[in-house]
Amino acid sequence: MANDIRQDIIKMLVEAGSGHSAGPLGMADIFTALYFEVLNHRPKQPDWPERDRLFLSNGHIVPVRYATMARAGYFPLEELKTLRKFGSRLQGHPERLRLPGLESTSGPLGSGLSQAAGHALALRMDGNKARVYCITSDGEHDEGNIWEAVLFAAKNKLTNLTVIIDRNNIQIDGPTEQVMPLGNLAAKYAAFGWHVIEIDGHNMQAIISACDLAKAIVEQPAVIIAHTIPGKGVDYMEYDYHWHGNPPGTLETPGAPPKAEQAKVALHELRTLGGRIRSEHE
């Protein structure tokens, strides 16, 4: 499934002619795990009051969410072609009012975790047992607003909140550790009073187990630091920060095929990988 979603992402981005490649490909396994194993949700009833909520803080990776939602039955796969086009429900960055099933509007970095935390607090006030998940990126942790939310969630002991950080070590201007070193994120979160779980973000079983474990933590919010490979599944994109904000067919990078061939090569690789996508960490 995660591989089908990766192919959907490549097709969507090529059709749109713009958008982010690396992040969505790197997060395909996590979104697959969430929508097909972890979340308690009803694709045909996106406003079901008891649904688990998934806040996407780093809105720019939304193609992976759209593709996964379509595969999960929220809307027809055909609609994925409309990404970023005029009149589409699939805006370049997610807009809650446009597409049922998006919990919030995001894109400008740093404000999703606060919303997820506020939402978790409100659900607890109402005795609603639904769980709140929030996906953030590592680069997003440059934003002060994130750390304000980290303090807030710990203070309020939001045990109904699970945060997943896409630790892919890249951002637009280069490696995160050069742009603005984040250092030991696990130690930082632990020092802020969170329960920290670190996983390989391409190991399906590890993702599901971590989400289960997070539910069992008492007195603390839980963060899953998921180590992912940006561009995962497409050789010429993996680890290369140039593909953070560009779709196939738009860039010449060392080792990449000519522009005209890039989409074809990416799809071919993803089609033939089959079960071979597995983590370098394993």
């Binding site: 919030s104 506020g118 609603n128 939310a149 807030f152």
Partner: peptide, 10 residues
Amino acid sequence: TVAAGMALAG
């Protein structure tokens, strides 16, 4: 932003 998240919960 916390307020926005709470508003989304009604």
